[in-house]
Simulated scan of single mutants.
Amino acid sequence: MPVDITFQNASHAIVEYVPGMRRKRKAGLLVWRDWDLEFATLFTPETVYRWQRPAREGGRWEERTAGLGRGEPAHVPNPLKVVPLVELPNRSRLHGNPRSEIATVLPLQDAVNTLWAHLMTASDGLALPARAVLGMDRPVREIVDPESGEVVGEEDLPLDRFRSDRLLWLEKEGASIAEFSAADLDNYLRVIDKAVQHIAAQTRTPPSYLAGQLVNVSPDGVAASEAGLVAKVTERQRHFGAALREIMRLEALANGEIGRAGGLLLGSVVWRDPQFRSDSQYSDALVKLKSLGLPDEAIWERIPGVTPEEIERYKGMRTDAAGAILGGNVAALFGPKPDQPEDPPADTLPEAA
């Protein structure tokens, strides 16, 4: 039976450790909701407990037997003899709960959002020059009685008409038009840029990732700007490696491969290089490693994207090439050759003078 490895949300799963032993899991709880039911599964090294309850009423937990098969109990022995939930800790600490990476930059992000809202509000009324008519009455129109034809009053004309027509008559003597210049909104942008730079510095994120401005920058400069991010990723790899190794060990135990499980317990996780390098940079580095005497297998493992299966295929290709050389068929190493004409019969050869 195949083994499934799934990831659970941290709000739906929790792991309890043996006091004083951060590596040994004592129990694990998994909860989830499916339509109108809530389910819970408690894992211990000896037993797996399963419950359910109505989601809306929030009633008492009952043993979950539905859908498990005929005669199967709700609580079953744990065949692995170990808790099958593994925590992937992020920024774990010796005391207290883990702290989010964005906890320190949330105030700055709120400030950026507030400034951006102010910028949008100001741009609505202050981004364009404003004009005002001075020394003139508000335009009105007469209200005429349809039956008598007499003027019975006046009403103000809506100013939207003048905005759309872009036309205005100034008939009153002394009337003039005043203009108010547009406001400079760059002050908002400068403050936002500074806040984004602080966010990049606190989170060790390259500024070019957030600002999107990268002009005439040398490769060394790009590598220097990404050094903090690469160091942070390398640190995360160190913490996640032990948890991923434990996950694969549980997969081996579930498949009955005791030997592989023991090897994984003492093994290590090999991560891909977190720093981006071009193909020419990788090739240059591999050539230098080859000049130091490293075997081909060690160099092949450092090629990005190369799998262990491909490395085995490379070994087979190298063995075939060596066999062709020892067998005298060197031409086979360079591909097929065109057919050669057959030798003519002996009786058609010219006689020697």
Results as ranks from 00 to 15, higher is better:
P84I: 05
E150V: 11
K337T: 15
M1W: 07
K337N: 10
P77I: 05
P158W: 07
G58L: 04
M248Q: 03
D339V: 06
G221I: 03
A74C: 04
P338L: 02
T6H: 00
A27Q: 15
V230F: 09
E226D: 14
D193S: 04
P89T: 10
E101H: 11
I299N: 01
L286Q: 12
E62T: 14
S148N: 06
R318T: 11
F162A: 10
W116Y: 13
F7N: 06
G305W: 01
E147W: 07
H95G: 01
E150M: 11
E179L: 12
G153W: 09
A55K: 07
A353Q: 11
R56I: 08
D296I: 08
I177N: 00
Y282I: 12
E38W: 04
P107I: 04
V230R: 02
Q202R: 09
N329F: 09
K290G: 15
A40Y: 03
D296Q: 11
V112Q: 00
E171I: 10
L210Q: 06
E251I: 01
E142D: 09
A40W: 02
G293C: 10
D220V: 13
S176M: 15
W300E: 06
E310A: 01
D184M: 04
T234I: 07
S280L: 14
P338S: 01
G316Q: 10
G263M: 02
S92F: 13
P89F: 11
E312Q: 03
S225M: 14
P350G: 09
F276I: 00
L29T: 06
G241F: 10
R302C: 00
P73T: 01
A175F: 02
A127R: 12
T203S: 14
L292N: 15
R22G: 07
G28E: 07
A117I: 07
G221D: 04
R141P: 00
R91Y: 12
N187L: 14
W35C: 13
R190E: 06
F334K: 04
T205I: 11
W169K: 11
A178W: 08
I325R: 08
S181E: 07
A66L: 13
E101Q: 11
A346V: 06
A252Q: 03
E179W: 05
A74V: 03
S164Y: 09
R260K: 14
Q8V: 10
P129W: 08
R260T: 15
S92P: 12
G256H: 05
D284R: 07
L292P: 05
R23N: 15
S164D: 12
S123N: 11
G228I: 03
V230W: 05
A322Q: 06
L250N: 04
L265C: 05
I199E: 03
L85C: 02
V191G: 00
